[in-house]
């Protein structure tokens, strides 16, 4: 937590650097999408870049770096259940779909 005056002054420069990085990554992701790669690679690259950007925002703008473990645990819990939600489509694509494919 950047609490003392000095630390805040120092972090201002950091914010500007992060801003620069976010801008550059936005351009990179737009350029990358015009590359002729397979859908899977495209999705991976775009999400990887977005994750880096998201991490930058969370660690520096939201000061996650200076927080304590209580908050980390809460967020890990949320992240775990978030993953579970994201897995729902995978579950729905398990055997049933293949069975239907075999029938039709």
């Amino acid at each position: 937590m950047a609490s003392s005056i000095e630390e805040v002054r120092k972090s201002v420069r950091l914010y500007l650097m992060v801003f620069g990085a976010l801008g550059v990554l936005t351009i990179v992701t737009v350029l990358a999408s015009s590359l002729n790669v397979s859908v899977a690679v495209g999705v991976f690259v775009a999400l990887a870049i977005a994750s880096v950007k998201g991490t930058l925002v969370a660690t520096y703008f939201m000061h996650l770096l200076g927080e304590r473990s209580t908050l980390y645990w809460v967020l890990i819990l949320a992240a775990f259940f978030f993953l579970l939600l994201i897995l729902i489509p995978v579950m729905m694509h398990s055997e049933t779909v293949h069975l239907i494919d075999q029938v039709t």
Binding site: F81, M91, M92, S94, E95, T96
Partner: peptide, 18 residues
């Protein structure tokens, strides 16, 4: 309690693995 929800859905044909 977060990882049991689909036991309400056994009859939706979600497959034996699930």
């Amino acid at each position: 309690s977060f990882v049991v929800w689909a036991h309400h859905m056994f009859l939706t044909g979600m497959g034996t693995t699930m």
